[in-house]
């Protein structure tokens, strides 16, 4: 089994004539927290969408645990163990928190149409176990006694937490979080940073993070990758990235480097 959980080989994506990502080589090791940063419009979310099958790359390949996943549909990624959240929260707004998590378990449950109608003992056991597990996940994500609440009625922070719980329900090996702290207050952000560390330590997950808040990035990441204009411009441990001239230039403009 290769050390890299996820690997991309010169990944490229064009929309019409616009190049959103160009020749991105990228890896996520096992049990690591990797952050993806870059200015707005650098192609981070497009890159994410290629790592989950939502977009098909124009060129290049995506490997997950050594298996070529390029051009596979999103559910195949989830099945292999890639879970994700969305930048603009996409919960099932009109389902309860518990139901949201149960939908997340879809690939890990087996009951088919006919078994569901007959409600065989296996399905019955499976459903009971799924509900127990879902409550555990809600609790783990900090949503105690919220399982009956409709998604839309949860607070913003709780919606973010529920999205993570839902993604965890797919039993991922790699969790992709798209700007998870956007819109959170400093205290919530700090809690979230601890939560990401727990994911790695208690669940042995790898986490790939798109993040704008540098305190979060520097606090939890083992490695940081910087995208600018769709290309990878730097990669390395957080301390090195902080000092990298090209990164500073990308964020602040060339003048800032010279000054």
């Amino acid at each position: 089994m290769p050390d890299e959980l996820l690997q991309t080989l010169s990944l490229r994506k064009e929309f019409g004539g616009l190049v959103a990502n160009n020749n991105v080589d990228f890896t996520v090791p096992r049990n690591a927290v990797v952050s993806l940063i870059g200015p707005n419009g650098a192609g981070k979310t497009t890159f994410f969408n290629m790592l989950t099958g939502v977009y098909k790359p124009t060129n290049g390949r995506v490997l997950f645990e050594g298996e070529d996943m390029t051009n596979k549909p999103p559910h195949a990624y989830t099945q292999r163990g890639v879970g994700r959240t969305f930048q603009n929260i996409r919960l099932f707004q009109n389902m309860t928190a518990l139901e949201n998590v149960l939908v997340g378990m879809h690939v890990r449950l087996k009951g088919n149409l006919f078994e569901a109608i007959a409600r065989t003992p296996r399905v019955r056991r499976e459903e009971v176990a799924a509900r127990v597990r879902a409550r555990e996940l809600l609790e783990f994500s900090g949503l105690v006694r919220k399982d009956g609440v409709i998604g839309r009625n949860l607070s913003y922070g709780d919606q973010r937490r529920l999205e993570v719980a839902r993604a965890l329900a797919t039993q991922p090996k790699l969790l992709l979080l798209d700007e998870p702290t956007a819109g959170m207050n400093p205290q919530e952000t700090a809690e979230f940073t601890t939560f990401v560390s727990r994911l790695r330590e208690e669940l042995k997950l790898s986490v790939l993070l798109i993040e704008h808040d540098m305190r979060v990035v520097m606090g939890v990441s083992d490695r940081v990758t910087v995208l600018d204009y769709g290309e990878k411009i730097a990669e390395g441990p957080p301390e090195a990235i902080q000092k990298d001239e090209r990164v500073i230039e990308a964020y602040l403009g060339a003048a800032a480097v010279k000054a």
Binding site: V54, P73, H75, T78, R84, N94, M95, V103, G104, T170
Partner: peptide, 15 residues
Amino acid sequence: IAIREDETAAAAMGI
């Protein structure tokens, strides 16, 4: 029901 509510999210949940 998940598909009815949000197809993209449903696909991301492995449906």
